[in-house]
Design a protein around this nucleic acid. Structure first.
Lengths: 218, 218
DNA sequence: GAATCATATCCCACTGTATGGGAAGTTTTG
DNA sequence: CAAAACTTCCCATACAGTGGGATATGATTC
């Protein structure tokens, strides 16, 4: 009798086996072969492919570990849908930035669907001082004052001519752990980035902080 | 000129496309087709397979979202390798438990490699009151006193005869957010679960708390 | 309530991708 | 220094995945 359409998939089965194999601890290609029962050449090639697509990453001694797709903090998990909703509401690129030393890193980005858009890939790093998120993350006094007054700080053409942005802090227990940011070409700004978008942005940033707090209570 | 062996992989590329497609928001099978450019029958079948292996999950309205492989808090990400190392050092099953209302849930388990072992699958829920983690998570005064004195609390045959366990709290800003636990058959206990394993366990629990703190500082 | 549109699901002839034994080079171990 | 282990790659071969199209179901519109 013919089987109904199956959901089994050989490649996915093998990918899952490899992921399970590195779940607890990293493994070399040979060790992956032993843990999965697959031939070393098969698992070696597969592991290299999995690195390319972010399922694994390779550390200096040649071992494979879970890749960036699995290493996401709770903050990113919480922020991503909120940023997506914010992008849907405003139409502009919505991002989350964190500080690392004297630089900032874009942890999440949800791009505008306009043809003309402000966009940087997630993972981008920038110098701190410019742009609304940079000023906020570097605790620039004027930026903090703007947040105090409006809940957001805006930037017009500071880092990239023709570009506007507005940022709001994500607070956890009175500490700024990240910023949410909307970036857009000035041609779509009516009054100013802050006036146009700041209220929605500040509400989204508070939401991230609240949900993280709730998550932390476990 | 012949290319060197390539790391591209058609199936992984498609899996990654689907995962990227649901990253920001859930999608139906038809919507996945649109977001990825794949034919609906292809992406429908692939999505069903991805559900089977934990890459996606399907919600009630038929939409696909990221599956259990991707929904892990920072706490679990941090705790898993530490529990693996603890299991390697002690040889016994190492687990992390959290409190949910009047129950407790096993969030991570790394099983002993002995043939005789204490094991429950991750996701198990138990009533609070018994077992060393249960007593700790329910803030039993004697348990807290034991932690104060030793850094750990032990249990011998309280919930399951023949089984011993020792637990230590994972603290974040003076709050107990989880417990780490070692469970083992009494036949492998020399003095008591606490005396034998407590020091390693308490150190591992402090490590989890410290790394989570560091992660929170971003 | 019927018509239309959209979606979910499945089939199967056909396409083309993945496999793994084996070889070569490198690194580690005794 | 030899042996063992590992990494990496090739390629003849095997077999898994594709997607157009059909059917059924549900939602929307008139």
């Amino acid at each position: 009798m013919a089987e109904p359409a199956t959901t089994s998939n050989r490649m996915l089965e093998r990918v899952a086996m490899v992921l399970d194999a590195v779940e607890g601890s990293s493994a070399s290609a040979s060790e992956l072969g032993r843990r999965t029962g697959l031939s070393v050449s098969t698992v070696h090639r597969l592991a290299l492919s999995m690195v390319e697509y972010g399922f694994l990453r390779r550390v200096d001694d040649g071992d494979f570990k879970l890749g960036h797709r699995f290493v996401r903090t709770a903050l990113e998990s919480i922020a991503t849908p909120i940023l997506t909703e914010l992008r849907n509401v405003t139409g502009e690129t919505a991002q989350m930035w964190i500080r690392r030393g004297e630089r900032r890193i874009c942890r999440v980005t949800v791009d505008s669907q306009h043809e003309l858009k402000a966009t940087l890939p997630a993972g981008s790093t920038l110098e701190l001082p410019n742009g609304s998120s940079g000023r906020l993350l570097s605790h620039d006094p004027e930026a903090l004052e703007s947040v105090e007054e409006h809940g957001w700080v805006e930037s017009v053409g500071r880092r990239t001519p023709g570009l506007g942005s507005v940022s709001a802090p994500v607070m956890l227990r009175d500490q700024m752990i990240a910023t949410l940011c909307l970036a857009m070409p000035l041609s779509r700004v009516e009054v100013s980035p802050g006036r146009d978008f700041g209220e929605n942005l500040a509400r989204a940033a508070r939401m991230v902080g609240t949900e993280l707090e709730t998550a932390k209570q476990l």
